[in-house]
Write a protein that binds this DNA or RNA. Structure first.
Lengths: 248, 248
DNA sequence: GAGCGGCATTGATGTAAATCAAAGGTTGAG
DNA sequence: CTCAACCTTTGATTTACATCAATGCCGCTC
């Protein structure tokens, strides 16, 4: 099924027609953020040998809910939306994966959500069985995975508060503040603007709102001089307002 | 700070004035459901030696968000609500812990939520540092904890769909179906009624609704002959209706 | 640079659930 | 048994957000 340590994924498409071995992990710019930060140089090079680069075009699907999880991924560039859909078309986005985020924490055979590339995406891909065997032998990697999982759980609980108890305005403010923090962490320094590569519909599906409400609230904030809308994102004008209004 | 393996918790109250060593784990009725099912007899007896029974009266607090997490708990009897509160009093209940559930998966020093006893509660308590050391040395216990964490994460995502995208009627139906499944698992067999030891306000705070809406929807379901309200719970009349309406 | 397709915005209207406001029930103390 | 405290239920009214319906605004392709 594969040769020379390179393997293919049944549902791979887009720019992903061929694979190259992973770039050198030692120079990986998001390593400090990722599960790999738990590893020493020897382990890192072992992991590197069993990894492959994967690229996904904007709008392509990394994997679908219910698909068998042959691979796990470390996102190295771009943004992925994690989606749960109801049979009648209603969607809830449970999260956006940014560089450094790991997809495949669960130890189950099948994916519990669909992952779609919001922008062009690059990821470090591992064959699941190999990765699991490795983490079985490396307690600090397993521990790191567990830390990631419990951190995600805490974020999920924050998001429950947001979905269940915040107003539309508070939801948008919380989302923007969170995105600002996350991008700052990924980029390593504060940017003037807050990147919003996802569309208004995605934001709506993440916050449990409609696209019209998201548009209205953001534009009202602009009229109220709280922010300015710029290409590919927004810029805070009144940062205090946002810190005060973001509760989750 | 403690003697003969028995330790005290700074915030322990209620019926918890003194401790006895844990009951015999071999006869623990919820072991098959708990993290302990990963352990062999030797490990179990080691764990038993480092555990203590804890009891909490109805309405008492097991621990508060931000408190330092000195202990971790395995719930053996009763129901605990896990609460996140906003400064203005709005509450979101992120989950109800039933027998077999574990509190303390996170590896962080402080609790990320408040835990309150809905009924009288019994729990198997471990000193956190001891438990962590033990799981560090026992990969399959760590793995089991990780399985619990990722399972919780998946449930949290289900709950996000519920909070963000379901109607009040769908939320109630989903809640009832879930409680039925969970109690059946805990009791080991199907009961005629679905126990609802928590009050209407708790259900509302779990589903992101108000108490009035919860009351109205449940009573409307009764008028529509979908269920009957009984002391301490409800009974399904039209189980098909619920299976069909519960989406998360 | 005309036309098209895919978002985003804006306005008018509708509605599910919140809020406000009383009653009813149930429990337990005295 | 009576009373009080605390839930829960029910009804009337309001409202935040959804829905329905255009219109505007790019960035493509040809």
């Amino acid at each position: 099924m594969d040769n020379s340590g390179v393997f293919t994924e049944p549902h791979a498409h887009g720019a992903c027609g061929h694979h190259v071995l992973g770039d050198d992990c030692r120079f990986c710019s998001i390593r400090r953020l990722s599960v790999c930060s738990a590893l020493d140089p020897d382990e890192l090079s072992f992991l590197e040998d069993m990894s492959g680069d994967a690229a996904f075009e904007e709008k392509s699907t990394l994997f679908r809910q219910e698909d068998e999880a042959f691979s796990v991924y470390n996102i190295t560039a771009g943004v992925v939306r994690l989606v749960r859909s109801l049979s009648d078309g209603r969607r809830q986005i449970t999260g956006f994966a940014l560089p450094g985020d790991f997809l495949g924490l669960a130890l189950e055979k099948s994916w519990k959500f669909t992952a779609e590339a919001v922008t062009d995406v690059k990821a470090c891909r591992f064959k699941r069985s190999t990765f699991d065997d490795f983490s079985e032998k490396k307690p600090h990697l397993m521990r790191r995975m567990h830390e990631f999982a419990t951190h995600e759980l805490s974020l999920a609980q924050d998001h429950m508060v947001l979905l269940g108890r915040l107003t539309a305005e508070e939801k948008i403010a919380s989302f923007l503040v969170t995105m600002k923090r996350r991008w700052t962490r990924v980029e390593g320094h504060e940017l003037g603007l807050i990147r919003l590569p996802m569309g208004r519909q995605d934001i709506a599906d993440y916050l449990g709102l409609t696209i019209e409400t998201v548009s209205r609230v953001i534009n009202q904030m602009q009229r109220d001089r709280k922010l300015v809308i710029v290409p590919d994102g927004i810029r805070f004008v009144d940062a205090d307002y946002f810190e005060h209004r973001a509760l989750a």
